[in-house]
Design a protein around this nucleic acid. Structure first.
Lengths: 184, 184
DNA sequence: CCCAGATGTTGACAATGCCCACATATCTCC
DNA sequence: GGAGATATGTGGGCATTGTCAACATCTGGG
């Protein structure tokens, strides 16, 4: 059918772009039923291939989950950067926090996959890079406004506050509006 | 062997107290290999019973996980209450936060199970009760020191800060000492 | 003493992750 | 343009797991 050249470096062969299709299918499964619902065989079914085709693109189920988490970190980073670009230093940090919370609220399952510990960053280089790049984008904004004394601790505090709110939102223990009200 | 009367209401029959043994086995599996490693069949094996015996005590695998999470919330609540009892109002909140962080650091897998969304509180009454009781213990201390104006928001902020730090500790993104340094 | 219910066992089935050998499409190089 | 190499997809199979049904055994009350 379509024959785009994929961004991941895989070229399109028989199926068109099975890797991308599998990730898309897995994302649907993740959002619909959480991590437990993400299955190599079901993703293959949705993509219209045999139960073993995924192994040409992902070494294991965990590798597929890692790809989903990687995608999530890239999306979050993009959201953070856009939010930062739209605001000036005084309110920039608040804007980032809001973007962070909105991400967690809009895609709870992916957020939990990213931070749930089911996939270890260390085992998946792409994931490790995407996650540290995302934290870097956040950190650079957090530290830009503070004087050196205690800056590190304040940065960590800000990050932890937003991160905690995001988890509470993802777990449906508070709603997104109340969380945003906490961002000063 | 031993014949304690269990707290859950189950009496001891053939095995002694299978329910308790299964929970203990599952706890070991959880700590050793994360949620994915918790298996009804493996827990049964460790308890020395057949693969179907657990169904006399847990309706499903998720019910066993819910029992583990419930146990976790009760332990956390106990830790919070003890910490609160040992400190007076000015530092009491910090003491609670420290206890919260130590819990997350000492038993990362259980912490993630409690807040990871794999088990839904709504589906397990005991879990729902234990978790809300724990939050109640936390909330009562958080709100005791603030004046009414903005108290609710400050309480939520404090909770979110500690909760975020705990997640970062559990995910090994910062270490426990750095987290504690953020508790003012 | 005997029965009802609680507890544990055996056997089975479908789904899954993963491995193997094999088939087929595409690319490279001549 | 054709042959070999490589990438991609298929089919079968195996061990493990969650769950169900039927059966066995233990315990306590009448």
């Amino acid at each position: 059918m379509w024959a785009l050249s994929t961004s991941g470096g895989d070229t399109a062969y028989h199926h068109g772009d099975l890797r991308r299709s599998l990730i898309a299918a897995a994302r649907d499964l993740l959002r619909a039923g959480g991590v437990e619902a993400v299955t190599l065989r079901e993703a293959a079914r949705l993509a219209g291939v045999s139960h073993n085709a995924p192994y040409r693109h992902f070494a294991s189920r965990e590798a597929l989950l890692a790809a989903l988490a990687t995608e999530g970190f890239r999306a979050l980073r993009k959201a953070l950067e856009e939010a930062g670009r739209r605001a000036e230093p005084p309110e920039r940090l608040t804007a980032l926090g809001r973007a962070y919370l909105r991400f967690a609220d809009a895609d709870r399952a992916t957020f939990r996959l990213m931070f749930g510990g089911v996939v270890e960053d260390a085992d998946h280089p792409d994931l490790a890079e995407a996650s540290s790049a995302t934290f870097g984008a956040l950190r650079s904004v957090v530290t830009e406004r503070e004087s050196p004394a205690g800056a590190e601790r304040d940065a960590l505090r800000a990050w932890a506050l937003v991160h905690g709110l995001a988890h509470l939102v993802a777990d449906r223990q508070i709603d997104a509006a109340r969380a945003e009200a906490c961002l000063k």
